[in-house]
Design a protein around this nucleic acid. Structure first.
Lengths: 133, 133
DNA sequence: TCAAAAATAGGAATCATTACTGTTTTGCAA
DNA sequence: TTGCAAAACAGTAATGATTCCTATTTTTGA
């Protein structure tokens, strides 16, 4: 039952901690392969799933058809750019409040919350403004 | 360019309007097939995608690996039961406020917001309480 | 009524993720 | 330390939701 800490799992976890973007399993795989060429994609998936189940990381499904992983498990929101596809953090007050409101309102147990905003990020807005000239 | 209103699209749209749960494409397909046996799954997907792009319905990705569709496009939250998988609405004040806070805070354009809560619904809690006896 | 544009049915293709299998690691206990 | 069972791994095959493709049918505006 006890989880054995393999070299691979440690690398996956610590890689995720170095990143502020929210890489997909494949990005994790490609990066770790640089230093550890015969890690397998299955291992990356298995460990990301395991870590997410244990609450050590978050698995995000933002609607682009690919799962993203986040080493920051504190309560925060995400933003997804419809143009470049980047996934970034948004720190917002009022999430705690929303959570407790939902708990009061809802008949059942609420464990977890996920809020995601969609639009076009600053960089992509600038880029399309330049192209207009 | 103009969208032509096919019989199939109308059936898909009006079926979705009759439902307060948030059916998957396959559920829509299975239901419409009862009255219209040779509609194809591809047609269901194409129309759901088209209607969602036009903002007439919502496509929800709640993290169970399957897309759900919602005929109610007003601002509201969802709850997903980890036990039975049901997806239900939660009406909450304060979403507007959260949205405008995010707009102020964020460098970019925000178009849309999605908030989802996860836990165990009332029915499933009751069921597991009974089993304890 | 006619023709062009749009949509359809049915099936094949895609691709992210999971499952499988034989081999290798890991961690505990003697 | 050494041995052994549980856990994890690499590599690959399978799965399954969704999208793509093509020849045919519907829709709509003139």
């Amino acid at each position: 039952m006890a989880m054995k800490y393999s070299r691979q799992r440690q690398m996956i976890f610590s890689f995720l901690m170095t990143r502020k973007d929210h890489p997909t399993a494949d990005v994790v795989y490609q990066n770790i392969r640089q230093n550890y060429p015969n890690i397998s994609l299955g291992t990356v998936y298995r460990n990301l799933t395991l870590l997410a189940e244990r609450g050590e990381i978050l698995r995000l499904q933002v609607g682009d058809g690919v799962d993203h992983f986040d080493g920051d498990t504190s309560r925060h929101c995400h933003f997804v750019c419809s143009d470049c596809g980047s996934v970034t953090d948004i720190q917002l007050d009022g999430l705690e409040e929303l959570f407790s409101k939902a708990q009061q309102e809802f008949d059942g147990r609420i464990d977890r919350q996920s809020t995601c905003f969609y639009g076009v990020c600053g960089k992509c807005l600038d880029k399309s403004a330049e192209e207009q000239i």
